[in-house]
Each structure stands twice: as C-alpha cells, then as structure tokens.
Design a protein around this nucleic acid. Structure first.
Lengths: 228, 228
DNA sequence: GTCTATAACGAGATAGAC
DNA sequence: GTCTATCTCGTTATAGAC
C-alpha cells in the first residue's frame, strides 16, 4: 500500500515536473503573458483538463514557476557563498554577485519572469516571499559575518531616512546597524539593475567587456555597504 | 494646394496619434506581448487593414511606442535639468534622477516597455537608439559642466577596465575622464535598478518611504561618479 | 496619390456539445 | 477525453471613394 502510494506520489511529481518544464519552454518562446495551460498540455500530449489536476489555474502554474526561479537563483547564490568558504567578506560578496549574474545569463527568461515587467493581470501571492528572500539573505549573512569578525564601516544616512532604516533593520536584520541595512537594500536593487541592463539589452553598443564591468561595479557596491 | 496637403498631413497625424494612444491603452491592459493591430483598429472603429496605412506592421507600431516612451522620458529629464538652472551639479543630478523616477511612476507600462523584459519575438531596431540615449545625455551634460566648472573627483578604476573605459569615453563623452564615464554607466544602470525594483514590486514589504529612500540612494550615486 | 473597406489565407486559440 | 464550430491574430490582394 505504501509502495503504491509512493509510486503514485512519484508519478505525480514526474508529471508536475514535466508540466513545469514545458511551461518554462513556453516562457522562453512566448513570454509569461502568453503562458497557456492548453499549449502546455498540447506539448505534453495531455488534454487541457488533465493539467488542472496538477495546477488549479494558469496563475498557480505561474506562481510555481516564479517560486522555482527564485529558489534556483537562491540556491546558486548559496552555493557560491559556500564555495567561497571563509574568504574575506569582499571576496564572498563578489562571488555571490557573480553567481547572481551567472544565473541570470544562464536563465534569462526566468530572470525576466521574476525581475522583469510584471505579468499583466497577475499578482504574485505571499507564498513566493520566502523563495524571493533567499538571495537577499545570503548578502545579509555575509554582512553579518563581517560585522562580527572585522567590523563594518558604517555608511552615511541622513536623519530623514533614520526611521525607515530602523524599521527595515528590525524587519530584515536586527543584528546589523540600520545604516548598513539601508545601504544593503539600495545595493541589492542596484546590483540587479546592472544585471537587468545587461540582460535586457541596454548595454548593447555601450558596454563591451560586461563581465569585467560587472565585477568592478559589484566590488564598488560592496564598499558602499561598508565592506572593506 | 498647400492647404489641402496641410489638412491631409494633419489628419494623418491625428489618426497616427489616435492609433498610438489606443495601443498604449492596450499596452497597459494586456502587455506588450499581446499588443494587436486588430484590437487597436477595433477600438478606433477602423478596419485592421486601414491601420497598415499608418504602421506597416505590428512591430513598427511597437517601435513607435518604444521611441515615444524614450522620448517622453528624455523630455522629462531635460525639463528637470533646465528647471534646475545653474544649481550645483549634485542638485541638478538629484533633480534629473527624481524626474526619471517620477516619469516611471506616472507611466509604469511605458517604463516596463523600455526597461522591462524584452518582448518575445521582437528586437528593437537601431532607430530607437537616439531616443534611448536622451536620458543618458542629460546625465553626461551635468558631469561635463561639473568637470569644467568645479572639477570632478575621479573614481577609482582597475587597470583591467582601463581599455573598456577609454572606449566608452571615446564613444559617449570624449570630454570626460574615462573613469568618470565608466562610473557613470554603472550609476545609470544602478539608478534604473532602484526605479525598476520599486515599480516592479520588489520593494513591497521592504521599503516604505520610497521617495526618501530613492532620494538618498540617488545622491550617493552622484558621489560615486565624482560629483561633490 | 491617399485612404478605407471587403475579403481572404493560414495559423492558432477557445467554448461547448457530445 | 474528443470534436467541432467559432473566435482571434497578422498580413495581403483587390477594389473603389475622395
């Protein structure tokens, strides 16, 4: 009985994976806006109603793809952090930043799905938050270590932003100085700005050696959050 | 005769504008991927083939929307620069940055069109380059003035990036030191990273006072390019 | 010459009956 | 789960009004 259930569960997982894989192919070919359960079903030789046994709606399939993308990026960042071992924090920062860029270049359509234009008519549920937070937590961890071990330079912060920074720090990283947390959020957005510009074509005819350019910009961002 | 031509030309311009307006509405409602000439024609009470007198293809209509969006943003940036008069360069930088953010918040779908995910199956022609360059040129102008008047701090630059920076400077702003140009390109991408994160929802539950947060981050970016 | 309208093609999506 | 009738789309050919 448990064997039967195990087989059933395994089969279900395999079909679920196949559906998501086909959906990702569609994402690449047509974009998230045109993702359709019917097309996915057709590609798998299933009938559209059968797909609804696995994903109750198109939006649920989209949500699964988004969560998977965030998790995949988060895993890549964590792997880079772990591979950097106990290297100096600036090196670990650089390694994770490179991993983010590398993942984005390897998965451009999934990157566009999570960091590009919102999908019209779709709003991501709160369910996606933990997966989305993973990359950010990796950066926070590096700063936390640096803060304990070697100390961090504390970035400047105007009085106007003090309450906001304290709120953010309380929410995200109570162990870090509020100035550092505020600077980190900004650096986080800016880092992804670099990746998005490269991926979305804004660097065409502007930046040629993009790897070197990104490496340097990411290193300067590390300085900006107080790493040294 | 010239009156008749003028009337015809005016009529043509009006229809062209109406088509683009309807297309922008569709952009907001359905996204660029689903922009359809037929739906635009229907909304205007035209027949689809008539639209082809104004735009030879769907992609040409998209290109026109993209160019218009870049021009609209560029005009907003230029207006902010002009309104800032001869204020100190850091203030002018801040004014233009605010204008970029303000334009993006006021035109989220057009922002997504030009700085968000690429439209599947569409590749922007070279024609869009001049319009796309306008915002960047405003920032370059501010730095040029600052360089002449007060001098700029020269950002650091690793030897590895020296050739790239010199190439970029030669292409974009020969009158500026290569280090400044390289830093400016990075700041440009990072500034739009901040705007994109806010607009695309990454700051949800993270940053509350987004105006103040942006203001401070933009000011720090100005420091990063050497303004003081 | 400039425009609009009709009709059609091939391809694909969709809704509903069965 | 299958089939069909009816939509959508981009695009073109053609004909006629101004």
């Amino acid at each position: 009985m448990s064997t039967a259930q195990g087989a059933r569960a395994r089969a279900r997982q395999e079909v679920t994976a196949a559906i998501k894989e086909a959906a990702r192919r569609q994402l690449a070919a047509e974009g998230a806006a045109k993702l359709s359960l019917r097309a996915v079903a057709r590609e798998l030789g299933m009938v559209s109603s059968a797909v609804y046994r696995y994903f109750p709606s198109r939006d649920d399939l989209l949500t699964a793809l988004i969560t998977d993308a965030y998790d995949s990026l988060g895993a890549a960042a964590e792997k880079a952090r772990d591979a950097a071992g106990d290297a100096p924090p600036t090196d670990r920062w650089a390694a994770v930043a490179e991993a983010v860029r590398g993942w984005a270049l390897a998965h451009p359509h999934e990157y566009a799905l999570i960091y590009g234009s919102p999908v019209p008519g779709y709003s991501a549920p709160e369910t996606t938050v933990p997966a989305a937070a993973r990359v950010g937590l990796v950066f926070i961890g590096i700063l936390r270590d640096a803060h304990q071990d070697r100390g961090l330079a504390e970035p400047s912060l105007p009085a106007e932003l003090r309450p906001e920074a304290e709120r953010m720090a309380a929410d995200l990283a109570p162990e870090l100085p509020p100035q550092v947390v505020a600077a980190l959020i900004a650096a986080w957005a800016q880092l992804f700005g670099l990746v998005s510009f490269e991926l979305f074509g804004q660097f065409t005819n502007v930046v040629e050696d993009r790897a070197a350019f990104f490496r340097h910009a990411a290193a300067r961002l590390a300085e900006g959050v107080g790493l040294r």
